[in-house]
Amino acid sequence: MIRYAAGRLTSLVISLFVASIVIFAVIEVIPGDPAAFMLGVNARPDTIAALRAEMGLDQSLIERYFDWITGLLQGDFGQSWTYKTPVADLIGDRIWISLPLAIYALILSTLIAFPAGIYAASRRSGAGDITIMGATQLGVAIPNFWFAMILVLIFAINLRWFSAGGFPGWDNPLQAMKSLTLPAIALALPQAAILARVMRSSLLDMLGEDFIRTARAKGLSARQALWKHAVRNALIPVLTIIGLQFSFLLAGGIIIEQVFFLPGLGRLIFQSISARDLIVVESVVMLLVFTVIMVNFMVDLAYAAVDPRLRSKA
């Protein structure tokens, strides 16, 4: 188990290193000189040159990469050129919206998907299965911003249970959670639909396995065999999907953040890209990559917790 974890950790570090190089390189080849962009079309060349020097753009690529990475490692994300504030502060403000939102949505989608998938699998081809599969078909097909608008229409405008957007801050946690509820549901529904389908098909695969027949021969009822033997084995593909979904929820919430006027990471990236604020884009993307890689690392550990075969293999 320790060797397995060490192996995963090594690959985590390598992934992070490669990702940092890729992110840095991609940002460098994006056309448009940030200094020229910030000063406008009529700026004099020597002013631009001065700004470039101030921003460190006149240094060599390797020097700039090295500065950036050592800064990141010390928690210094640099200074935003447009906001004129430390990038760490910009991210710090927004991560407390995006991260809770992603976790909230993931918990909701899991809570919806697991019972739905297990129920559908246990009643294969029955009315319940057909209904759930029909619903997930819709869930997969309909984009989440449409759900978001419908939710706003019903729960904010008609019923007035929730506010239609904005975020009051974490001073009142209950209010904060309440304002994240509609966005979280809108994000969670399509994810839950996918997850329920994966859960169902993975469970059905397991129910066809020989060890389920063995369990039945021991005297377990069909339902007991499903719960005691099939579910844990079916979790492996489901965990993979959950890991992928978390990454998506964290970065892909941008449209939902727009619909609900939430000042999250998605909006920050969007604004920074339009303003050519490269240092912010680099840092936020790197942070997202870091989170995704960490989540995948945790998924790998979860695999090992579920499957003893992985534990004994290095």
Binding site: F211, A217, N233
Partner: peptide, 25 residues
Amino acid sequence: PDLCQMRGNTMGMVFQEPMTALNPV
């Protein structure tokens, strides 16, 4: 339900494929 009581108790079964007949986890 009564058959479940009998399986494993009155009658037991061994299958062909030992590699897949056991729950791996």
